[in-house]
């Protein structure tokens, strides 16, 4: 028996909207730790790792570990039927091939049930080692989204270079080149506008713009984004959800042949 109750359906809606275009089908794993998902995109270039911690739910009952295969587009369709301030309850009985989403309006005067078919998904779970990254940038999530969108209109790849002074995003395309430098800055009115650099060594890596743009669909989840880079690792683009957990996107770099 699984029963998870979350007061803000809006959060789950934003989570689904941020990953449904990157990953088609995925297993949601439910354990004492929380409700989690790990999945690669179809070309195995990017990986999504989501954790919604059990203690972030209003009610969390998961009698034993369970993995539920879902089509994320269909799940997003059902969640779009909830209002952001509805309470959502996710329910599944042991051995059932369906999951139920129940939405309750804040005044309890509207209660809706949506039952969705589960699917068998044969997916490989990857071990992601805890790593020390050579460079970590924390910056405004909306600024990062703007930069990815702007550079994506000019070139297919973005070079991200971190130095002690700041982070530089560069691209090159048929029409020309573009460079954006965000200097480290903590003297800001709103803390989410700060740009913080933690760097052991300068790092410069090249990534496909379209994946970075896809990751920024998670921008509504967090004020700041954390970008972690090392030469021998995929980049991690992380959106932390206050008290609930995180959405992490891993992207393998492009390497000079």
């Amino acid at each position: 028996m699984l029963e998870l109750r979350l007061t803000q359906a809006g959060l789950l809606k934003k989570v689904l909207e941020s990953i449904k275009d990157l990953v088609t089908d995925a297993n949601f794993d439910c354990s004492a730790t929380g409700f989690s998902l790990q999945a690669m995109d179809s070309s195995h270039v990017a990986l999504v790792a989501l954790l919604l911690r059990s203690d972030g739910f209003e009610h969390y009952r998961c009698d034993h570990n369970i993995s539920m295969g879902m089509n994320l587009g269909n799940m997003a369709k059902m969640l779009r039927c909830a209002s952001d301030d509805d309470t959502v309850t996710i329910k599944a009985d042991d051995g059932s091939d369906t999951v139920t989403f129940m939405f309750e309006s804040p005044s309890q005067d509207k209660i809706s049930d949506y039952e969705m078919k589960l699917m068998d998904i044969d997916s490989e779970h990857l071990g992601i080692p805890e790593a020390e990254y050579q460079a970590i940038v924390r910056m405004s999530a909306s600024e990062f989204a703007r930069i990815c969108k702007d550079l994506g209109t000019i070139g297919d790849t973005v070079i991200i270079s971190v130095t002690k002074e700041g982070v530089q995003f560069s691209t090159k395309g048929d029409i020309g080149t573009a460079n954006i430098i965000c200097r480290k800055n903590t003297a800001v009115d709103k803390k989410e506008e700060a740009t913080v650099i933690e760097m052991a060594e300068p790092v410069s890596l090249t990534f496909a713009s379209r994946y970075l743009i896809a990751f920024t669909k998670a921008t509504p989840l967090a004020g700041q984004v954390t970008i972690s880079m090392s030469y021998d690792m995929p980049i991690v683009v992380e959106y932390k959800m206050e008290t609930m957990g995180y959405m992490r996107f891993y992207l393998a770099p492009k390497i000079e042949e």
Binding site: M40, S43, H44, V45, A46, L47, E124, H125, L126, G127, I128, P129, T157, T206, A208, D232, M233, P234, Y250, A252, P253, K254, I255, E256, E257
Partner: peptide
Amino acid sequence: SCLQKKILDYFEGD
């Protein structure tokens, strides 16, 4: 030209 690496080049299955 650039070679696109894959996630599996870095992370292994459990």
